[in-house]
């Protein structure tokens, strides 16, 4: 069954199709939710909210672009909504001088699971910006818009996140 057929069946109320649709994306979207949270329970909350929204909005899917991309955008939006509700703070002092040497070789040798732990330990503000910029691939001006912060805050948060990650990576390689 192709995606279009699957979506159509889901919209008809076909329970098997709905389950199939969910199983097609749940594991991957759980991965996304974990990246944006610092514990399992929050990630599960995000995932649940996201899929409720996905099914609620499914009739609006235009069959343009990848279905996975569409689902993921909803997931990210749900996460950002939740973060906004909890009023996460982005400290806005933009001075970042402390740039470490890159540790690319370390990163490439690490499993996603290990990297996830590092990301989860970041403060929420850093983590959010880091995810949006480095992994989702948004630009700082887009992130600024999404999070209602200034572009320079987005940049400085990202720099700080990067530094903290690099520090952790360094520490871990020493051990």
């Amino acid at each position: 069954m192709d995606e279009q057929q699957l979506v159509t069946n889901c919209l008809k109320g076909d329970k098997t199709a709905q389950k199939q649709f969910y199983e097609m994306f749940a594991r991957k979207m759980m991965g996304v939710c974990l990246r944006y949270s610092n514990d399992l329970a929050t990630a599960e909350d995000y995932l649940q909210e996201s899929f409720i929204k996905v099914f609620g909005k499914l009739s609006q899917y235009q069959f343009k672009g990848s279905l996975e991309g569409w689902v993921k955008r909803i997931v990210v939006n749900v996460v950002l909504d939740e973060l906004r509700k909890n009023r996460i703070l982005f400290d806005s002092n933009a001075e970042v001088t402390d740039v470490l040497q890159t540790t690319d070789d370390v990163v490439s040798n690490m499993e996603a699971k290990q990297l996830l732990q590092i990301i989860q330990r970041l403060p929420t503000g850093y983590r959010t910006v880091f995810n949006l910029y480095a992994i989702e691939g948004y630009q700082h001006n887009e992130i600024a818009n999404m999070l209602q912060i200034s572009e320079s805050t987005s940049k400085s948060q990202y720099q700080k996140a990067k530094i903290q990650i690099q520090k952790t990576l360094k520490a871990q390689t020493i051990i």
Partner: peptide, 14 residues
């Protein structure tokens, strides 16, 4: 650096 993370999480599932 960014690409490393992007790649690492490209097919990440949980």
């Amino acid at each position: 650096f960014e690409n490393m993370f992007k790649d690492a999480f490209e097919n990440f599932e949980a």
